[in-house]
């Protein structure tokens, strides 16, 4: 078995999700290769050689990849995948976007968002917003898989000594191109890789109170900010803050849920967190059923008190 993992990076740094996907690859077994494809991303590939358990880093540098869409990325991966038994990427906004194109062009069923490797051909994945887990066996010759990063412990950043192989691969179908990019202020840690997440729900009541109460707390804890779908739908914050089955899946060391009732779809996005704290005025809120520490009270008093006590 030889496994190709597609790295996620910003041309400067490898994103943390990649090390979790490598762990899933190692659970399958066999030789693991890592593809670093991008624009001027040699430094990423060089750093990736040290990752534990990687035998080979494939480097593709192509200027078209910077602004190209899923069509281009899928064609590139497709041109490299034929010698492999498994193709893995993170179930991130990026992996979800291009991976199904590769699967369709290989005429292979894709396994989305796996949380467990049961055997090299058998995997478990959540369905119905995580209410149920399905164990599925694939009979395809190449297994095409996206991985829920938080379900696997990351491999070590050091200890490996992979060989580096440059590959010439160009593809630009010209079907789509990026015309505008608006990235959020990145002074906070990324939601999906933060050690601490402070998350707010409809209980906050307004966009102003969301930021006035939660930002100081997140600052003290060097935490990422998240939100429930209800808070997003109410317009308190934008959708990329959303934690849940239809948003981001997180598993930090500490997750603090403020004014979040705990709908199934939200729990699906955070219940793998190591320690969960819930602050809510309703003692019967479902969030308390998954919280390690629940505090029943008025968030307008409790949150500032907590912030100043830290």
């Amino acid at each position: 078995m030889t496994i190709l993992v597609v790295a996620e990076h910003d041309n400067q740094h490898l994103k943390a999700a990649t090390r979790h996907v490598l762990a899933a690859a190692q659970a399958i077994g066999g030789e693991v290769h890592l593809l670093v494809a991008g624009q001027h991303c040699a430094a990423v590939a060089e750093a990736a050689r040290a990752l534990s358990g990687v035998a080979c880093v494939l480097l593709v540098e192509n200027d078209a990849l910077e602004s190209a869409g899923a069509e281009c990325m899928a064609d590139l991966v497709l041109s490299l995948v034929h010698d492999y038994t498994h193709l893995l990427a993170a179930a991130s906004a990026s992996g979800k976007n291009w991976m199904p194109r590769v699967a369709a062009l290989l005429d292979v069923a894709q396994l989305s968002d796996i949380v467990r490797v049961d055997a090299p051909d058998t995997f478990t994945r959540p369905i119905y917003a995580g209410s149920v887990w399905a164990t599925v066996r694939s009979e395809d010759t190449i297994k095409v898989i996206t991985v829920r990063a938080t379900a696997f412990e990351a491999v070590a950043e050091t200890g490996g000594s992979a060989r580096l192989q440059k590959v010439d691969a160009t593809s630009d179908a010209g079907l789509s191109r990026r015309t505008h990019l608006a990235l959020n202020d990145s002074s906070r840690p990324e939601l999906e890789s933060a050690r601490v997440v402070v998350s707010g729900g409809r209980g906050l009541g307004s966009a102003e109170r969301f930021s006035a109460l939660l930002e100081p707390l997140a600052d003290k804890l060097n935490a990422a900010l998240g939100a429930s779908r209800a808070a997003v739908d109410s317009g308190y914050v934008s959708n990329d803050y959303q934690v849940g089955q239809t948003g981001k899946i997180v598993a930090p060391d500490l997750y603090i849920a403020v004014g979040i009732s705990g709908a199934i779809q939200h729990l699906a996005g955070m219940k793998a967190s190591r320690v969960i704290v819930a602050i809510n005025k309703d003692p019967d809120a479902p969030i308390f059923a998954v919280a390690d520490y629940g505090l029943v009270g008025d968030l307008n008093q409790v949150v500032p008190e907590l912030t100043s006590a830290l």
Binding site: G69, A93, S94, L175, R177, H180, L183, S186, E192, D240
Partner: peptide, 9 residues
Amino acid sequence: DGGLETLSI
């Protein structure tokens, strides 16, 4: 992840 992009398709 981390923002919004606009594509011309």
